[in-house]
């Protein structure tokens, strides 16, 4: 069984952190992963900086732009990830935009993920129909798992279809929003989380978008197997040394 699936099976209240490769500095990628692992993060979303991240809010746009200015690119990222393959025990989930894979060469891209020990990916602009028509076969060929997103506006029959395709977890987008934004979880969101939970899907659920601190993380975990923090973490490492990552993570876990 895959590392991530084992984790999803045996543990609840999973904390996942999103970070942007090559941010704040070009060579911080591996250090950030190591610090996150040391701090007790359960799995890590490895963000590929993209020039036009349409699903991301200002914070991740900023970190992506900064990382690209630092000179990051896919080859450097894959080298960085390969270098920690042996020591890193924490499951990594890759997050990037479809054009990055398309331009790099789909097969070459997938092979690189395998080389880096990554078997799960999130591509926010990969729609289900394209997955069905083309990418499902490609990912199967390389043993890769695709993560689908659901939102407050996703219809029930579509959620069920997504559930049937899911091999790791469903990414429950907390609100109709791009990443970042918000700060609190509203009653409306709670109703939505309850609705999804009551569907008794076979897949594990991880909530993301708008999760920023202990309080929002705790609330999310009441309705799902865990949650992802992205923008709040990027903000933190923009303003604090990456040696102090533990100071951000510990209060959330405890």
């Amino acid at each position: 069984m895959k590392k991530l699936n084992l984790l999803l099976e045996k543990k609840d209240n999973l904390l996942s952190i999103y970070f942007t490769c090559g941010f704040p500095k070009l060579n911080d990628t591996t250090k950030v992963i190591c610090e996150l692992e040391k701090s007790g993060v359960d799995f890590i979303e490895v963000g590929l900086p993209y020039s036009d991240p349409i699903a991301d809010g200002p914070t991740i746009q900023y970190s992506s732009q900064k990382a690209l200015e630092n000179g990051i690119n896919l080859d450097i990222i894959f080298d960085q990830l390969v270098s920690i393959k042996k020591t890193n025990k924490t499951p990594l989930v890759l997050m990037g935009y479809l054009n990055q894979m398309l331009k790099y060469g789909e097969d070459k891209f997938c092979q690189k993920l395998v080389d880096c020990g990554i078997d799960t990916l999130i591509i926010p602009d990969l729609p289900m129909i394209e997955f069905e028509n083309h990418y499902q076969a490609l990912f199967d060929k390389y043993g890769l798992t695709n993560i689908f997103l659901i939102t407050p506006n996703t219809k029930e029959n579509r959620i069920k279809k997504i559930d049937s395709y899911t091999k790791a977890f469903i990414y429950v987008v907390a609100s109709s929003s791009i990443t970042g934004a918000k700060g609190k979880i509203s009653n409306e969101q709670i109703t939505y989380f309850k609705r999804i939970k009551s569907m008794e899907l076979k897949s594990k659920l991880i909530i993301g978008f708008g999760i920023s601190d202990k309080s929002t993380f705790k609330t999310a975990c009441e309705f799902a197997n865990g949650a992802i923090i992205g923008s709040a973490f990027i903000n933190y490492i923009s303003n604090n040394s990456i040696d102090k990552i533990e100071d951000f993570i510990k209060p959330i876990i405890v």
């Binding site: 993209y50 690209l68 690119n73 479809l98 054009n99 990055q100 894979m101 331009k103 790099y104």
Partner: peptide, 21 residues
């Protein structure tokens, strides 16, 4: 340009070798 995705559409797109637009 070369084949790429921009604003939700696959088309011909000016981009670098890593797909950055």
């Amino acid at each position: 340009g070369e084949v790429g995705i921009i604003h939700g559409s696959k088309t011909i797109l000016m981009q670098d070798k890593y797909g950055q637009i």
